[in-house]
């Protein structure tokens, strides 16, 4: 039984040294993830998005049929 100040503490149910992340499990925030998204091209601090972003299935086919047309992102 640990006592801090005048508070009696119960048995700790976890250790502070317990891992907060299991190595090998994919992290959504990991560097490089954004670059793997189809239809996103770096532009300054932002990104230029194109119609390729509309779907992961055959994304090239989503570009406009005429190169003179604006290549717009679906969202």
């Amino acid at each position: 039984m640990t006592t801090i100040a005048n508070v009696r503490l119960g048995k700790a149910q976890t250790k502070v040294t317990a891992s907060s992340h299991v190595p090998g499990i994919r992290e959504g925030n990991a560097k490089g993830n954004v670059a793997h998204e189809p239809g996103l091209t770096p532009k300054g601090r932002g990104l230029r998005c194109t119609a390729r972003r509309s779907t992961g299935i055959n994304p090239d086919a989503r570009d406009p049929i005429d190169p003179k047309m604006p290549n717009l992102t679906p969202a």
């Binding site: 992340h21 990991a30 560097k31 954004v34 996103l40 300054g44 601090r45 998005c49 992102t73 969202a75």
Partner: peptide, 16 residues
Amino acid sequence: EHIHQGDVKVFQDFDV
């Protein structure tokens, strides 16, 4: 202004 330029980047990836 960003939307009109096709810039819809809203997330920066990072490592802890």
